[in-house]
Every structure is written in C-alpha cells, then in structure tokens.
Design a protein around this nucleic acid. Structure first.
Lengths: 135, 135
DNA sequence: TCAAATAAGACTTTATTAGTCGGGTATAAA
DNA sequence: TTTATACCCGACTAATAAAGTCTTATTTGA
C-alpha cells in the first residue's frame, strides 16, 4: 500500500518540531505530544528510536529532553524513517541477506529486479530531502 | 512502512506473465496461479480488479481468460498498483476530498506539504515505468 | 530525597491484509 | 441442450501488523 506508518509521521513531526526550537537547549517528549495532541507514550518511543540512530540525542534526568543529533541539512528523511521503521523495504525479499525463506517465489520471481530498482529510487528520493527542506 | 501488498505483487506478476505470452489469445487465472504457486482465488480477484481499470481485458466462458488491455508501453506500474490498491496514498490526508475527519492533526499538521511532494514524486516514478521496462 | 525526565519492554486493542468459500453468469463444444 | 470451463462478485475468516497502553527502571537537577 506504500503507506507511511504513524510512527514515521510522528517521527517527522517530532524532528521538525525540535528543529524549529533550536534556541532551546532541549525539548521534552511531553511537550511535543501536548502540542500536537499525540499519544505521549508513542512520541516517547519514537524519540528513543531516533536516539539510537543518532538522529536526535537525549539528555536524561530532570530538565532533560531531546535535541538534534546533527545539523538540519545532515538529517535526511530516510534517516528518520528507517530509524523508526527498520524494515521499510517495499517487499520482504530485498532485505539484507534475504533468501528463499522470506518468499515462496524467490526462485521463480520475475519482478524482483524491477522492484529493487524502484526501492533504490524511493530511497534516493528520501535521502535527498533533508530536514532543512521541510522546515 | 512503504510496503507493497501481496495484491500488488500478484498483479505485477500476472501482468508480466500475460505480457510474455502475447502469442496466446488469452491466459487463464488458473494458469498464472499454477505457474507461480499463488492462491488461485487471489490471482483471480486481482485480475478482476485489473479488468475494471482496463489494464487487462477478460474473455468470458470456456476458453476464456485474460489478455492485456493496452500495449505494454501504455501500462505503467501506477496503473497496475492503483487498480488493486485504490488507496495507495502514503497518508490518509492526501486522498481526494480528505479533510479534518481523516486526521486528528489536519489543522496543525506541519508535514503535509512535504509529504504531498513526496507522494507526487513516488507517483511519477511509478508512472514512468511501463510494462515494457519490466519484461 | 523528590520530581521530572528518558529507557525499555511487555501487553492489549484495533486495523489491515491475506486468504477462503459459495453462488452466479457466460460461452465453447459435445 | 447439457456439460465443463472460465470469469464475476461479495461475504466471511484467519493471520499479521500497526497503534496504543501500562509498568518498571534509571538518570539527574533542585
């Protein structure tokens, strides 16, 4: 269905929000959730995943929160989406080390090559849009 | 997750299969299902949807089956995918006539415009690949 | 020490996708 | 005119994935 998950949407919103508040030392998950009326737990979870991939960095404890891990022009949309959606591939068979076990038609599949090309094009598309462009 | 549905995969496989058998007057759903070991009912359903959108045309009755509705260079991947997956948009809010009811953050959404641009780029990508290119 | 914040994972609910089934219609050929 | 083969269509079920909730632990500034 080529549909973006809520996680990805929330991640994009969160990163954009943080990017727009760069004057502050950091921004809390609660603030983002409140501002956009999103479930706090999910926003929180998404930010934790973004932290693991260094898209944002976290400051723990009271007065803690999140700030960007790099400059806005160094964060591409693929960084954000793949952080929260590690298996964002359009089909199972194009994941790292995929094989017959991921697909009943691995051997006879006639559409894998074209799909891999499409996957690469979509990835490039998302790679070429940075946070700078969306703020 | 930007993942393609099985329906779309089967549709692509079916169309490619038919395109490769153009010497035959038509190809049955059963033949396609057997050849790729796909569930017949699903292949059948997918072909019916492709028929509605004139991607293929159906010949009813005994000795019936399917053949392409247009030339291979006139069928793009977006034709095939949108036939079986009418709501293939990356988010709900970019469907024809979408409004506040489709999204809790329609009014305050800060990422809609960039996402619409991405949607358009993906659509163009799929529009520019025809069946000719994948056979 | 306390309050506010992140971290992490288990769990539940809901939505979507995938697959199945049954009955209907069309048509070539015996 | 009967039969076999094939498309047509919608309802249903099962499986999977996404979305959301809850609980507990850890960090740290005041």
């Amino acid at each position: 269905m080529l549909k973006l998950s809520k996680k990805s949407e929330y991640a994009l919103m969160a990163v954009k929000y943080i990017a727009l508040q760069q004057d502050k030392t950091c921004v809390t998950a609660r603030e983002i959730a409140k501002n956009y009326n999103l479930p706090y737990e999910l926003v929180s979870k998404v930010l934790q995943q973004l932290t693991r991939y260094n898209v944002v960095l976290s400051i723990q404890g009271a007065k803690g929160g999140y700030r960007l891990g790099k400059g806005t022009s160094d964060i591409s949309l693929i960084d954000i989406i793949s952080a929260v959606e590690p298996r964002h591939q359009i089909t199972n068979c194009m994941m790292e080390g995929s094989s017959v076990k991921d697909c009943d038609h691995y051997d006879c599949c006639m559409i894998r090559d074209p799909l891999i090309k499409i996957q690469n094009k979509i990835d490039n598309l998302l790679k070429n849009i940075t946070v700078t462009e969306i703020i």
